[in-house]
Amino acid sequence: MNLSKYTTVFKNSWQFNLEYRLDTLVRFLIALISLISVFYLWNDIFADKAEMLGYSKDQIVTYYIIVGYLFASIYAGLPTAQEIQDGSLSIYITKPISFILYSYWQSLAKKVFRLIIGLPIILFIFFIYSDNLYLVTDPKAYLILIITIFFAINILFLFDILIGFIEFWMMHSASIVMITDSIVAFFAGTLIPIVFLPNYIQQIANYLPFKYTGFFLIDAFLGRLGTEEIIFGIGIQIAWTLALMLIVKIVWIQGLKKYEAVGA
């Protein structure tokens, strides 16, 4: 694989995101506004409690800040369905380039850019509200966070492109995104940490990859998981990445046959 052409894709996408940095900042502003209700809601719930399911109030608020930051950064929709629908996919398949890798590097640039742009905002929040937040001091936790973010990015990318491939068989598949977005965000624990949900929902979450793109990362970062649980979690992330890679590959081959058959 010639990596240089994909690093060019990465650079171009980075440049594009740099030009639209105001949009990224507005995205974080929106995430910050959501935190207002989170802060007051949990303040109210914790009014007469020191901890809940092992979380202190500071940990819960920190959880929401990090999950909000992560999801605003790494969950970025791909234009795959649109590219299939309007035929612009043909541009990629006639070039000596892998469409999947092209999309991967393009979205990777966007996600890394967002992670970097959002970081000073997060640091600022921690600086201002340090008394109400849980400061993680273990350097290992930061290393684990970076590793788990990397795999979360891969899982979300593969899932995203898979959903985009539905367009090969069904027009207007973009409407499915509304469903998948809700499922991903919910089971990733962006609305509420998974352990607060009823048992049967926690069981469902265990069989889906999304828990390992949000909830698991933050629980590991906050020091709520032991070493074995973290290694097991990363193992699950790798397993999901490999499984999704395989599914994406199969669906891509089948979809492309259908795409070429209709003469697009």
């Binding site: 809601l41 809940m52 509304m178 509420i192 607060f196 949900l197 009823p198």
Partner: peptide, 19 residues
């Protein structure tokens, strides 16, 4: 999608009221 979003909101509040 709308029904799902709606259901998720209800589950969220149910989870809150459990605590």
């Amino acid at each position: 999608g709308i029904i799902l979003q709606f259901t998720i909101t209800i589950i969220f509040f149910k989870a809150i009221y459990l605590r």
